[in-house]
Amino acid sequence: MAMTATAGHAHADPHHIGVVIEHPGPASKRIVTAYGFWIFLLSDIVMFSCFFAAYAVLSGQTAGGPKGSEIFEQRNVAIETVCLLLSSFTCGMASIAADVRNRFWFYLGMTVTCVLGLIFLVIEFREFADLVARGYGPSRSAFLTAFFSLVGCHGLHVSAGVLWLLTMMAQVFAKGFRADVLRRIMCFALFWHALDIVWVGVFSVVYLLGSAA
C-alpha cells in the first residue's frame, strides 16, 4: 500500500481528519495469483484439520485391532520426514533458479524434488500395503480408518504435487520462463512447502504421539 498523503481530499472522508492514505489501485498479476493460491492453501489446511480432528477423536477406537505403537515404524517415518524436508529445500533452490532464469539449476532442483517426493511416496505405499497385507487395512477399526485417511490424504496431495511438478518442468521446457509460467512455479513452491508443514503435523501427532502413547 503506497503511502500517498493527500490532505486535499480529506473533506471527502469525514472520518480521517487530515491525512488520508490512498489505496494505489489493483495489484500486479503476480501478487494476485499468489494471493489467490495462498487462500486456496489455507482452505486446504482447513480440510486437513478435519482429518486431524477425526483422527484425534477416533485414535482410541481400535475395536480390538492394533494400536498405533504396534504398527508404526519410526525408522521409515524418519526417512520420509528427511525426504520431504530436503525436497522442500531443493524446491526452494529451484524457485530461486527460476527467478534468475537459470534452466540447468531449475531442472536439477525440480528433478531432485521429484525423486525425493517419489521416494516418500514409495515408502508410504509400502507401509500401507504391508498393513493391509497383515489384515490391518482401513476397514479393520476406526483408528485405522482415521490413520489411513489422514496419511493417505497427505500422500494424495504429494502425488498431485509430483504430477504438477512434472507438468511445470515440461512447461518450462516448452515455453521457457514466461511470466505466467513463473507465476505457476511460485504457486507450486507454495504448495510443496505447505505439504511439508502438514507433514510436520502428521509425523508429530500421528506417528510420534501415537507410538509414545
Binding site: A54, V57, L58, Q61, T62, A63, G65, P138, S139, R140, S141, A142, F143, T145, A146, F148, S149
Partner: peptide
C-alpha cells in the same frame, strides 16, 4: 468400507 461414522468397529456417528 471405512469406519468413520459406522456403528461398528469404533466409528462415531456423532462426529
Amino acid at each position: 468400507g471405512f469406519h468413520f461414522f459406522t456403528n461398528e468397529a469404533g466409528g462415531n456417528v456423532m462426529m
